[in-house]
């Protein structure tokens, strides 16, 4: 019984949150990795792109809520998501037209594009704060829990409860659908193959008659969709605050780099590696330990390796280790 309680406690506080967080990071990292692979620069504006897409979704959600449109037990935000994606697409295509295209025509070095993307980041950051404000925004509605802790205890008779939040389940389901669509697209469709070809060997792709501007445009479309989905899911699961999205850049880049920049499969793996490390290292193991270990050696303290305030340090350390020992990442990424 103690053992079961330990497993339930572990699932409740570590597994479920880490899987949800991992899916969000994976979606974010996929966007970063696609831009790196195809447009050949690290996009520092990605966190704020997520915030922008999420912001549009939130505004539409609020409007829908006020107009009485809802999805019953599911959050209204899912209904507003397509509008958010459209808004984000418009924003990214506009930035590409106004800013990135100029540098592409100059054949600017990746490092210049990185700096350019930082400029874009500051501006997007400003726009988001200007429109929705710097504060926490709540937009989640519908059923909060699929199974609440109390229901679970009543159902199983265990003393530990397992709460499964609707947002966690939605996160995982949406992430799985998005990733499946993306991989089908990249591997099976002609457009996806042109993107891979362009990423693999730009010169040859051009000389095969592939139109680079079209590849770039499709890339931005996909990145906008991924970023908005990631941003909305993160907002539903936690809350929406522009600054948090800026902070997400570090774990997102860490995920993409751990998996191997430019490799979509790597981005997903990286997302889960980072999420699980972050959650397990900042979790207070006292409860689980008390169930599993005999009383004599059970810890008195919290058995927490690192305070949650330091969770970003975890991504940072993992990033350092990977860059030191396996710079191309777990899966072989590409170097520009």
């Amino acid at each position: 019984m103690d053992f079961l309680n330990a497993i339930v406690a572990l699932s409740n506080f570590v597994l479920v949150p880490a899987i949800a967080y991992g899916s969000q990071l994976a979606l974010g990292a996929l966007g970063v990795t696609l831009i790196y692979g195809i447009l050949r620069f690290s996009n520092f504006a990605h966190g704020d792109t997520m915030a922008f897409g999420a912001m549009i979704t939130i505004l539409v959600t609020w409007w829908m809520q006020s107009a009485g449109i809802n999805l019953g037990p599911l959050p209204t935000a899912l209904l507003a998501l397509p509008f958010g994606i459209l808004g984000c697409v418009a924003m990214l295509l506009l930035t590409d037209r106004l800013i990135y295209r100029f540098y592409r025509e100059q054949k600017a070095k990746p490092v210049i594009l990185v700096i350019v993307s930082m400029g874009v980041m500051f501006i997007m950051n400003g726009i988001v704060r200007f429109i929705i404000g710097p504060n926490d925004q709540r937009f989640a509605d519908g059923e909060r829990f699929l199974i609440s802790a109390r229901e679970f205890k009543a159902m199983t008779g265990l003393s530990e409860g397992l709460a499964i939040r609707t947002s966690s389940v939605i996160t995982v389901v949406v992430a799985v659908i998005a990733v499946a669509l993306l991989f089908w697209f990249l591997n099976r469709t002609r457009t996806g193959k042109s993107m891979r070809a362009y990423s693999d060997n730009e010169d040859l792709a051009l000389l095969s008659g592939i139109n680079p501007e079209r590849v770039v445009m499709v890339t931005w479309l996909i990145v906008a969709a991924l970023a908005t989905v990631a941003g909305v899911l993160y907002g539903l699961d936690k809350s929406f605050k522009p600054f948090t999205y800026f902070q997400l850049l570090l774990p997102i880049f860490a995920s993409a780099i751990v998996g191997g920049l430019g490799n979509p499969l790597g981005a997903i793996t990286g997302g889960f590696v980072i999420a699980f490390s972050e959650v397990t290292i900042t979790y207070a193991w006292k409860k689980v330990a008390n169930y599993v270990l005999p009383e004599s050696i059970a810890p008195d303290g919290l058995a927490q390796l690192l305070s949650t305030d330091y969770k970003f340090a975890v991504s940072f350390v993992i990033l350092l280790i990977v860059l030191l020992f396996k710079p191309t990442g777990l899966f072989k990424g590409k170097a520009v």
């Binding site: 469709t189 040859l204 095969s208 139109n211």
Partner: peptide, 28 residues
């Protein structure tokens, strides 16, 4: 020699010519 290294030889040839109808999102 340049090649799309992760694709098969046949797929490499099939990348040519560009501008196939499968290259627009609509047709996809």
């Amino acid at each position: 020699a340049h090649e799309f290294s992760s694709m098969s030889c046949r797929e490499n040839l099939m990348m040519v010519p560009g501008g196939q109808s499968g290259e627009t999102l609509w047709n996809t």
